[in-house]
Design a protein around this nucleic acid. Structure first.
Lengths: 226, 226
DNA sequence: CGGAACGTTGAGGAGAATCAATTATAGTGG
DNA sequence: CCACTATAATTGATTCTCCTCAACGTTCCG
């Protein structure tokens, strides 16, 4: 179920801060993230954005659109991105031919929901420093799991403004929060890299329990990376 | 795919504020909600709760546990509740025998994720009155869709404290917010009933777009109610 | 060298939390 | 049927995060 599904589709590149799925848009394909970082997001009436989930290389970014072609959400590139646009028709054929793949896709949607649920908690019941630390913890384990870094240091090319949209804060407050985390020698963040100085402290201050990542479940990832 | 799947399992009743799935627990069944209101939730380090999704009669409340038996979330009863505990083994057999059912379950997980994503936005990027109004809008349409009420008046037996846990506010602030909504003749809430006086205003103040409910998608609901 | 994107810092204000009582409401048993 | 109790709702006063507004600094790249 891992590496090679032999998915065919159109390779595309997306510039940072471009919405590759607009809210309410009807899409006919899902996007396998080959490189870069993407975010699922929603908006409030004032145009304020809230990123609700990150997707990294290897993730099938809007697999859910297969079940709901008219999306109630949007997908944006956070970094320069390369994606493989896989037509829904092809994915449909796969799921019909191989029930195991259908199940893996379903499992992926459940894992997605688990992350989303944790984000509701993060944004609803945690203060700023905890929110930011929690995001760093989550991404540390996800990048580590994907073989794209480790929990002590991993590539995270995201602006403070986008980090603010992910944590439900303002970029100004995120900036101040990052300063505190840096001064306490817990984690050092700058555009592109997260450097964790004290993982134990980060987990503690981030109120982090990795259970929601469902890392023990089999094969939520669609593709590997060379 | 609707009404009668002929699901077999154990009927159980659950008292309000009882966790019928604890965080991190391993479960061997999913719970079809026959009557009452349930909530998926997470907790922060101080024990503060955040409800991340509501489930109403007819919903398969923890279907996702089939894909992730060791949950990273909890499920609590918000009202006196009647559930049908359907063993995972039985659900597995169903999905193996009928791919259409597997797909419906998958679609249900996607719909779930869509609601969760919207809740991240609600809690992360909206002020108190908008958050509360948004919840009232969502539940209005869901109860209406389920045939358990209509958007003008529906049963919603939830305490202000639980509403606070759903909106990421304190019960005190929820109380004050409800007062404002009442004084503006938009919506009147008391334990058990929501009475909408001005649906248009409620939608406007709640910054509500029903797209995320995926109501146009087919058959997300597992069972109907007499 | 100049502009654009991103980050940093300060001052003041607003929304929501906290602390602390007090008042309904509903269910229970005598 | 009513006192009793527990749960839920309401209100006030105060505090504190985080937001807003505003300006300035830094880095990178054409």
């Amino acid at each position: 179920m891992a590496a090679v599904l032999g998915l065919e589709g159109e390779i595309a590149t997306v510039a940072p801060h471009v919405d590759f799925v607009r809210i309410g848009e009807q899409v006919g394909h899902s996007s396998l993230l080959i490189d870069g970082l993407a975010g699922r997001f929603g908006q409030n009436g004032d145009g304020g954005r809230q990123i609700t989930c990150f997707y990294i290389a290897g993730d099938m970014a809007d697999l859910m659109s297969l079940m709901s072609p008219t999306t109630g959400w949007g997908m944006m590139a956070l970094t320069p991105m390369t994606i493989l646009k896989v037509p829904h028709a092809e994915l449909r054929q796969l799921t019909l031919a191989y029930p195991g793949i259908a199940e893996a896709f379903w499992r992926d949607s459940v894992a997605d929901g688990s992350i989303l649920s944790e984000w509701v908690v993060n944004v609803g019941r945690r203060d700023s420093i905890t929110r930011v630390a929690h995001v760093f913890c989550e991404m540390a384990l996800r990048f580590e799991q994907a073989g794209l870094g480790d929990r002590i240091s991993y590539p995270f090319y995201i602006t403070q403004a986008d980090l603010a949209d992910a944590t439900g804060l303002t970029s100004i407050h995120v900036n101040r929060t990052l300063k505190v985390l840096r001064e306490r020698s817990i984690v050092d963040f700058r555009l592109g890299v997260v450097r964790v100085h004290d993982w134990t402290k980060l987990v503690a201050i981030g109120d982090f329990d990795p259970a929601f990542l469902l890392l023990n479940a089999q094969a939520p990832r669609i593709a590997e990376r060379g």
